[in-house]
């Protein structure tokens, strides 16, 4: 249901933020330096936090402002900090042998955005006047999610897989903030907490990978087949 009836300026700021979040996932797709990925992820999280606060104020959902603060703190600060710690412990710099070139992955990403737009067209409620907010939200939601999956597929470095998962979550979070700002507060809190546990788990597993397998490249994981 169309929750926000936006006037010109508000709508422009809103579009700007969503598109910024989308472009930041392209930054992650193009760079092979893992530190850049983490940085882009942190900025994306802050953009989403601003967007949440913005919707909270424009749509009168006071609990969204709390969510925005938590998002900025947890997704935008704590998670990137933990990721950088994992990165330093494991002595990872960049991916040395990417599966495909940056330019190719950018083109694939662009195609996925088109696909996301197509999906949004089919899923947006028909009948009444099409609401550009919903289209925009659905397109970014699907596009960021699909790009996250693309990162999972194309990257071979363990930490990039984790970042791929986090980008998927960011996409879902962004979409849900716009489409259903009234979603129960508890659920969002638990999801944020859950993310923290996941990152800690991955941190431990990355350490195991480094000590037991000797590499954090997923191409080294070829023992179990058949």
């Amino acid at each position: 249901m169309p929750i926000l009836h936006l006037n010109g300026t508000v709508s422009a700021v809103f579009s700007l933020l969503t598109i910024t979040a989308l472009i930041l996932s392209f930054v992650m797709l193009a760079s092979h330096w893992i530190k850049n990925h983490i940085l882009a992820f942190a900025i994306q999280s802050w953009v989403i936090a601003v967007l949440s606060a913005f919707i909270g104020i424009a749509g009168h959902f006071p609990e969204l402002i709390a969510i925005a603060i938590l998002t900025a703190l947890l997704r935008g600060t704590v998670l990137p900090y933990l990721l950088i710690k994992i990165l330093d412990q494991a002595h990872l710099g960049r991916e040395f042998a990417p599966l495909i070139q940056s330019s190719t992955s950018m083109v694939l990403g662009a195609l996925l955005v088109l696909l996301a737009y197509g999906m949004a067209l089919h899923l947006a409620p028909s009948g009444s006047v099409p609401d550009p907010t919903i289209w925009m939200a659905l397109t970014t939601l699907f596009a960021i999610t699909l790009i996250g999956f693309l990162m999972l597929v194309l990257r071979t470095e363990a930490l990039s897989h984790l970042l791929g998962l986090l980008v998927i979550e960011n996409g879902i979070f962004l979409g849900s903030q716009i489409l259903m700002p009234g979603m129960p507060l508890l659920l969002e809190l638990v999801i944020l907490f859950d993310l923290l546990i996941i990152v800690v788990t991955f941190g431990i597993l990355v350490r195991y990978l480094k000590t037991e397998v000797g590499s954090t490249d997923s191409r080294a994981l070829r023992r179990l087949v058949g």
Binding site: L152, L165, E169, I172, I191, F202, L221
Partner: peptide, 29 residues
Amino acid sequence: RAPETIEAAWKYVIIASAGLSLALLGTVL
């Protein structure tokens, strides 16, 4: 803590979490 078990655990966490993120998307929709 053997190479095989860590490999299995890693694949498990990655694949299961990626799959479950789709379930979250479905729940949200």
